[in-house]
């Protein structure tokens, strides 16, 4: 491995238990892939009642505090509106779980 090799890792924090539920949609995980561990843009993975984990997620821009995609698994516009309206709470939950993971040594910061 050369000195300039850049290790890109997929990282995630668990959101299960943060009560991020909107009707049948339950956010379970935030994933991101960066050289440095701090997330700015994450993919929110979710469960739908009766269907299990959806094969795709939706993007959350933490800096803009904006949800960039809609859930299109027949959950309806009201659920997507409710998710967008809660973007600050969702962003705070992701940031809190990230800080907790760093504090507990689950995510290592570069030296």
């Amino acid at each position: 491995m050369s000195d300039t090799h850049i290790e890109i890792e997929t990282r995630s924090v668990n959101l299960d238990g943060k009560a991020l539920a909107f009707g049948p949609v339950h956010f379970v995980r935030a994933e991101w892939r960066e050289q440095y561990p701090a997330p700015h843009l994450v993919v929110l993975r979710y469960w739908i009642d009766g269907k299990g984990e959806a094969p795709l997620g939706i993007r959350l821009d933490l800096d803009k505090q904006a949800i960039l995609d809609e859930i299109d698994d027949d959950v309806g516009p009201d659920i997507n509106r409710a998710i967008r309206a809660s973007v600050v709470d969702i962003s705070d939950a992701v940031a809190h779980e990230y800080r907790t993971a760093v504090r507990n040594g689950l995510i290592k910061l570069p030296l």
Partner: peptide, 12 residues
Amino acid sequence: VWYARHGKLVSA
């Protein structure tokens, strides 16, 4: 690249 890594799934 940063945006390309983050879609509805992270790249792999």
